[in-house]
Amino acid sequence: MTSSLFDLSGKVALVTGASRGIGEAIARLLAAHGAHVIVSSRKAADCEKVAAAIRVDGGQAEVRACHIGEMDQVQGIFADIEAAHGRLDILVNNAAANPYFGPIVDTDLGAFQKTVDVNIRGYFFMCALGAKLMAKNGGGSIVNVASINGVVPGDLQGIYSITKAAVIAMSAAFAKECAPSGVRVNALLPGLTDTKFASALVKNEAILKQAMQHVPMRRVARPAEMAGAVLYLVSAAASYTTGSSLVVDGGYLTV
C-alpha cells in the first residue's frame, strides 16, 4: 500500500524531457503514485509511447510537446495546462541540452547559445510560469534536474557544467521568493546515469573506467534511482524542504 505521504492522487504533474531516461522514469513513478502526468518533450510521438505505457499500468497520462528552448512553446504549454486542468501541482524540469563535448576554450557560439537557451533560459521561464500557475491554487512543488557537474565541472563539459551550476543557484533563488505562495523549489543533482543523454560517457570504456574510480559505489546509476528522489521532493514527505540540492551520485562528491 502506498504511504499517504507519497500519495499524489489528484495532483497534476508536468515532466519535461520525459520521453526516455530519467524523465521517463520520473513520469512513470509519479503516475504510479496517483498523479495525472503530462509527459512532455520536443517530439509528441516519443512521449506517447511513455504515456501509453503509463495508461496500460493503470495510471493517468497525457502528452504535450514542448521545446523549452523556444519561448512561445514554453508560454503555450502553461496556457494549455491551465485551460485543460485549471491547475499545476508538480513541475519537473528535466529536459536539457549538451551539444558540445570538448575543450572549453573551443566552445563555439552555436553550442554555447543552445546550451544556455535550454538549460538556463528554458528552466528559468518554466519555473516562473509554473510557480505563477501553482500559486493560483495554493502552491506546488518544482524540481529542477541539475547535475553534480554544477558542483564539480565535468571534464570536457564546460558550458554544460556552467549551466547546471546556474540551475542550482536558480532553484535556491526561486525557492526563497516563492515560499510565501506555497511553492517549494528544489534541485536534484544526479551523478553519472545510464541514459542516452550520457551515452558518450557511459559507452566509452576508457572514460567510464576512469569515472568509476571516483564513485565509491563503483557503478553507474539507473534512471529509476533518480525518480525515487524526485518522488520524495514533490511529496508531502518533503513539505518543509525547499531550496535544497539533493545529491544522488553514488558518493562521487564525497571523494
Score class of each variant (00 low, 15 high):
159 I>V: 08
78 F>V: 10
165 A>K: 11
152 V>W: 04
128 A>Q: 15
156 L>N: 04
79 A>F: 14
110 G>H: 12
107 T>F: 00
119 N>W: 08
75 Q>D: 12
178 C>I: 09
182 G>T: 14
85 H>Y: 15
173 A>H: 11
176 K>C: 08
70 E>K: 15
113 Q>I: 01
159 I>S: 00
88 L>R: 12
160 Y>I: 09
82 E>P: 09
74 V>W: 11
146 A>T: 04
70 E>S: 11
104 I>Q: 00
100 Y>H: 03
103 P>M: 05
136 K>G: 00
124 F>A: 03
120 I>W: 01
119 N>R: 10
145 V>L: 08
71 M>C: 02
112 F>Y: 06
183 V>Q: 05
184 R>Y: 04
154 G>V: 06
85 H>F: 15
73 Q>V: 13
136 K>W: 05
105 V>Y: 06
72 D>T: 15
148 I>F: 04
124 F>M: 08
182 G>I: 14
88 L>A: 07
181 S>Q: 15
153 P>W: 05
90 I>R: 03
81 I>N: 08
141 S>H: 04
180 P>K: 13
126 M>W: 11
101 F>E: 01
120 I>H: 01
147 S>Q: 08
80 D>I: 14
166 A>H: 06
81 I>L: 14
159 I>N: 02
102 G>Q: 08
128 A>D: 10
85 H>L: 13
122 G>C: 03
179 A>Q: 06
166 A>Q: 03
105 V>Q: 00
71 M>F: 13
183 V>M: 05
176 K>Y: 11
179 A>S: 13
98 N>M: 13
94 N>G: 02
179 A>G: 10
135 A>E: 00
148 I>N: 02
143 V>N: 00
134 M>G: 04
181 S>G: 00
86 G>S: 07
